[in-house]
Amino acid sequence: NNDALSPAIRRLLAEHNLDASAIKGTGVGGRLTREDVEKWLAKA
């Protein structure tokens, strides 16, 4: 759900042209964290 994304995470996803639904969030309530996105980028 994009409503649950912080502005910083939205920007990070946009910079790398990523789809938030492709990344499993580990934050509160399954929210994406910066670490989630960075780990996903490291694997890609």
Rank of each mutant, 00 (worst) to 15 (best):
I23A: 03
L41C: 04
S6I: 05
K24D: 07
A42V: 08
N1I: 13
N17K: 10
A20W: 07
S6E: 15
D19S: 09
A8N: 05
G27M: 02
L12S: 02
A20D: 05
S6D: 15
A22T: 09
I9H: 03
A20E: 07
G29D: 14
E15W: 14
L5G: 03
R31E: 12
L13C: 02
N17V: 04
N17D: 08
N17A: 07
N17M: 08
L32D: 00
K43L: 14
L32P: 06
A8M: 07
N2E: 14
L41Q: 01
K43P: 05
L5R: 03
W40C: 02
S6W: 10
L32N: 00
H16T: 02
L5D: 06
T26N: 04
S6K: 04
R31F: 07
E38Y: 13
S21H: 08
R10H: 10
G30A: 04
H16R: 04
R31Y: 07
G25I: 03
L12N: 01
K24S: 10
E38H: 08
A20L: 08
G25F: 02
K43F: 13
T33P: 00
R34Y: 15
L12W: 11
R11V: 14
K43M: 14
L18V: 14
N1Q: 13
G30L: 02
L41A: 04
A4D: 15
A42R: 10
T26R: 02
D3Y: 02
G29T: 04
A20N: 03
G25R: 03
D3A: 11
E38S: 06
G27W: 02
G27T: 03
G27S: 03
E35F: 08
P7W: 03
R34V: 15
D36W: 02
L32S: 00
K24Y: 07
D36E: 02
S6P: 12
N2F: 07
R34Q: 14
R34T: 12
E38V: 11
G30V: 02
G27D: 03
T26A: 04
S21L: 09
A14M: 09
V28R: 08
S21V: 08
L13E: 00
L13V: 03
L18F: 08
T26V: 05
S21I: 06
D36N: 01
L41E: 01
D3L: 09
H16I: 04
L12V: 05
L32E: 00
G30M: 03
D19Y: 04
V28K: 12
R34E: 14
R34N: 10
W40L: 13
E35P: 06
R34W: 14
D19R: 05
L5M: 10
H16G: 02
L41Y: 07
K24Q: 13
V37Y: 02
D19M: 07
K24G: 07
L13H: 00
T33K: 03
E38P: 00
R11P: 04
A8S: 11
T33V: 05
E35V: 07
L41V: 10
I23E: 01
A42T: 11
A20V: 10
W40P: 00
K24L: 13
E15Y: 13
N1S: 13
N2A: 13
A14V: 05
A4K: 10
K39G: 09
L41M: 06
T26L: 05
A14L: 12
S21Q: 10
A4S: 11
N17L: 06
N1K: 06
R34D: 12
R11S: 11
E15N: 08
R11Y: 13
K39W: 11
T33G: 01
A44Y: 15
W40D: 01
K43R: 12
A44P: 10
S21F: 08
K39F: 12
K24T: 14
R11N: 15
H16Y: 11
H16L: 11
N2L: 13
H16C: 07
A44K: 08
W40K: 04
R34M: 15
N1G: 13
S21D: 11
D3N: 09
K43S: 14
P7K: 09
L5K: 01
D19A: 07
I9W: 06
I9K: 00
T33I: 04
A20R: 06
I9F: 04
G29M: 06
N1L: 13
R11F: 14
L41P: 00
E15P: 00
R11W: 14
A8I: 08
R34K: 14
P7G: 08
W40S: 07
K43I: 14
T33C: 01
G27F: 03
L13M: 05
S6R: 04
R11Q: 15
V37M: 03
L13Y: 01
A44D: 10
A8T: 09
L13W: 02
E38W: 13
I9D: 04
R34G: 05
D3H: 12
G29A: 08
G29W: 03
R34S: 08
A20K: 04
H16S: 04
L41H: 10
N1W: 10
G25A: 08
R34H: 11
A4N: 12
I9S: 01
L12A: 06
N1H: 14
R31V: 13
L32A: 04
T26F: 04
R11I: 12
K39I: 11
V37Q: 00
R34P: 08
V37G: 01
A22R: 09
G25P: 07
K39D: 12
D36I: 01
T33Q: 04
A20P: 14
A4V: 12
S6Y: 04
A8L: 08
D19T: 09
V37I: 14
L12K: 03
L18E: 02
R10D: 13
S6Q: 06
A22L: 15
L18D: 01
A4G: 13
A42E: 11
A42F: 09
A44F: 15
E15H: 12
I9G: 00
P7I: 11
R10L: 15
A20Q: 07
R31D: 06
P7Y: 06
E38T: 07
G29N: 11
L18T: 05
H16P: 00
R31N: 09
N17H: 11
K39A: 14
A22D: 13
G29H: 07
L41S: 02
N1F: 09
N17Q: 09
R31T: 14
K39T: 11
A22P: 03
H16W: 09
G29K: 04
A4W: 15
A14R: 12
R11T: 12
I9L: 11
A44C: 08
A14K: 11
K24E: 12
N17S: 08
G27N: 02
A22Q: 14
W40V: 12
G29V: 02
D36R: 00
S21P: 06
G29F: 05
N2S: 13
L41T: 02
D36P: 00
A20Y: 06
G27L: 04
V37W: 03
D19F: 05
K39L: 14
L13P: 00
N2T: 12
G27K: 01
A44E: 11
L5W: 06
E35Q: 12
G29S: 06
S6M: 05
T26Y: 02
G25D: 02
I23Q: 02
W40T: 07
P7H: 11
E35M: 08
K39H: 10
R31Q: 12
L5H: 06
A44L: 15
T26I: 04
A20G: 08
I9E: 03
L13N: 00
K43H: 13
K24A: 11
A8K: 05
H16E: 01
T26E: 03
A14D: 09
A4L: 13
R34F: 15
I23D: 00
A42P: 04
D19V: 08
T26Q: 04
K24N: 09
L13S: 00
R10S: 07
A22H: 10
R10Q: 15
G30T: 02
A14Q: 12
A42S: 11
A42M: 10
R10K: 13
A4Q: 12
A8V: 08
A8Q: 09
R31W: 06
K43A: 14
N2V: 13
T26W: 03
L12F: 08
R31K: 13
P7T: 09
K39P: 05
S6V: 04
A42N: 10
D36H: 00
E35Y: 07
A22M: 15
A8W: 11
N17W: 05
I9A: 03
A44W: 15
I23V: 06
S6L: 07
L12G: 00
I9Y: 04
T33N: 03
N2G: 13
A4F: 13
L41D: 01
L13T: 00
L32H: 02
I23T: 01
K24W: 06
I9V: 12
V28A: 12
A4M: 13
G27Y: 02
K24H: 10
N17G: 15
E38A: 08
R10I: 15
H16Q: 03
S21N: 13
E35S: 10
V28I: 12
K24P: 15
A14P: 00
G27E: 03
K39V: 10
G27Q: 02
E38F: 13
E15V: 10
V28L: 13
A44S: 12
D19N: 10
V37P: 00
R11M: 10
E35L: 10
G25T: 04
A20T: 06
W40A: 15
E35N: 08
